[in-house]
Design a protein around this nucleic acid. Structure first.
Lengths: 113, 113
DNA sequence: ACGCAACTTCGACATCTGTCGAACATCCCT
DNA sequence: AGGGATGTTCGACAGATGTCGAAGTTGCGT
């Protein structure tokens, strides 16, 4: 019998206590994902399609998944779009100072000169 | 004419100003390399073969190369062994607070519970 | 109802990465 | 000189990763 199709699989997020540092560092080591996090650190919430990155929608979706599963972001449904937020408080609780330090390091010229 | 063979190719390290944040984060996102950095953060200097990791020598050598090229460590020749040191001061200059925060985060239970 | 907008899921594909064993290069010690 | 210790370099190889296009799902407007 045909199971009622859901919109999408409900994404599963790690609990704050289960956030793994190596996963976080790996998630942040990609330029596209770092840009997403940087943008989010300056703005509380943002729709998926509005980030200043230059990749195909499917690629972007993949990066969101990596960030979600690493515990860096959360998604909230609103109308027919998805709003992305940084799990800043959770990260601060789990790894005090980490996110701020990384964001500042990149903002201050993290790419090689 | 046979060029005088050197012991090894002199490894080239990035200048402090050229250290790339994404390279650093990527280098740190591997458990073996993170262990090396952790060990080094508690001890000033250490021979290559004495790190508490469980991989083949060739694999270890590969990880050292990644860490070197990311700007995280330096090697110093002594007798027939190589001493590894953390570029803590350089990193502090380039990305203030980063190394300390990451080391503390991992020490404090960075792996998922 | 129809079409459009916003994302995700699903292959496919090239590249990168971590791992190892074998072979090589140095240096010390006997 | 010979042998052992210490590391590096060189393939090889399986698995992960970033990227895309095509197709599918859901909700809003017209």
């Amino acid at each position: 019998m045909p199971r009622p199709s859901r919109r999408r699989e409900a994404p599963h997020y790690p609990e704050t206590a289960d956030i793994d540092l190596l996963d976080v560092l790996h998630a942040l080591s990609d330029p596209t994902r770092m840009t997403i996090v940087q943008t989010l650190s300056a703005e509380p919430e943002r729709a998926c399609g509005t980030f200043p990155v230059d990749v195909a929608p499917s690629t972007l979706s993949h990066h969101f998944k990596v960030l979600r599963e690493a515990g860096l972001i959360r998604h909230r449904e609103e109308a027919n779009r998805r709003l992305t937020t940084l799990r800043a408080a959770d990260l601060e609780e789990r790894f005090p100072g980490l996110l701020g330090t990384v964001v500042a390091a990149y903002r201050g010229g993290g790419r090689a000169s």
